[in-house]
Simulated assay, not measured.
Amino acid sequence: MDLPVMPPVKPMLARSAAQIPPGMQYEGKWDGFRAIVFRDGGEVEIGSRTGKPLTRYFPEVVQALAAALPPRCVVDGEIVIVRGSRLDFDALLERIHPADSRVRLLAERTPASFVAFDLLALDDVSLMDTPLVERRRALVEALGEAPTGPVHLAPATTDLETARRWFDQYEGAGLDGVVAKPLDIGYRPDERVMVKVKHERTADCVLAGFRFHKSGPVVGSLLLGLYDGQGRLQHVGVCASFPMRRRQALVEELEPLRMESPAGHPWASWADEEAAAADRMPGAPSRWTGKKDLSWVPLRPERVCEVAYDHMQGGRFRHTAQFRRWRPDREPRGCTYAQLEEPVRFDLADVLSGPNG
């Protein structure tokens, strides 16, 4: 492979904001694996956000990219899986598997797609220093003959009102929110020069345990639960962003709730790896965490906290929730999935048929 921009390249990043800023290019925030694709003739390599290759995990995407992209190019985008009319991140996670036979089986059962949204190089020319408005124009031209199947061009607009409408509508198709990109800057790897605006909602959750922080005997994350329709407490995620002084204080504050063992705890079956994985318990093994310590301290599920979250995926918070406050006025049994706001469904096909200019 011999391209004007060679792997690995870390993608350009975004910082969070509460409002969509004016005067930028706007796109949906895709909920998938960020991927930078390098194609040089018959060679295709897919780099992840960390620079590690994703190529072996998505053979069907490699094949589609070889058919759709220009012969020599570097493209920034997102690998996604669509089920029904919306994105499915859980299905995407299943694709990171060590067994090649499993990867190829899932490539047939749950094929992935690639959504392109930036062009870093074309033929023998690097576009890294080219303003976004020109890179976008070149990307549209380069993918003009791309099929409507596994390779897509991300819709983009410079109209603020359209971006606001997308922010409301696209969540129903599984997107995270909206990304705003400055029109006049080049591509800046690993720099937070874009702006992301995500949905935020609140939920009252049962505190059912915690993990210690990697730095020592202070709280690292709180384990959160919600009761389902059968009265079972389901693990829905964690909240973890605390100042160090607060982490230290939480250990003492939660001491009265600590249990000597998981026996009698709603998640006592976490020690059984198969049961833990099936119910997504906090002690379940993970291909992503490897040998990371996933041990946790069980707490009597008697305290309720309010957390902020962006959206749900497969019955869990898609990202780490943000602690807001304790809710001593709430009963744990009242913390159910029924309180969660459901976005209005929106067909992903309508997202991908948006403006491409």
Rank of each mutant, 00 (worst) to 15 (best):
L3C: 07
M12F: 02
A17E: 14
K29A: 12
W30R: 11
I36M: 09
I36F: 06
V37Y: 03
R39A: 09
D40R: 05
K52T: 13
L54I: 05
P59K: 04
A66R: 13
L69K: 00
D76Y: 01
G77W: 09
I79L: 15
I79R: 12
S85F: 09
F89E: 11
D90R: 13
A91K: 10
A91G: 13
L93S: 11
I96T: 06
L105V: 12
L106D: 06
A112K: 10
A121Q: 00
L132Y: 01
E134N: 08
E134G: 01
R136C: 00
R136E: 00
A138I: 01
V140H: 03
E141G: 05
L143I: 01
L143F: 01
P147W: 11
G149Q: 14
G149P: 06
P155A: 12
A163M: 04
F167Q: 06
Y170E: 08
D176Q: 14
I185C: 10
Y187S: 00
Y187P: 00
Y187N: 00
E191W: 13
K196F: 05
K196Y: 03
K198R: 15
K198P: 07
H199K: 11
V206G: 05
V218P: 04
V218M: 15
G220F: 09
G225R: 00
G229F: 10
R232C: 09
L233S: 03
H235W: 10
V236S: 03
G237W: 01
S241P: 02
F242G: 05
V251F: 04
E252Q: 13
P256W: 10
M259Q: 10
M259F: 07
E260F: 05
S261M: 12
S261R: 14
G264A: 08
P266E: 08
E273D: 08
E273V: 07
A277Y: 05
D279R: 14
P282V: 02
G283K: 03
G283C: 06
A284G: 13
S286N: 06
S286R: 05
R287A: 12
G290K: 12
G290I: 09
G290D: 12
K292I: 07
V304T: 03
Y309H: 13
Y309R: 11
D310A: 14
G315W: 00
R330M: 14
P332R: 14
P332G: 11
Y337M: 14
Y337H: 14
A338V: 12
V344S: 15
R345L: 13
D350Y: 11
V351P: 04
P355K: 08
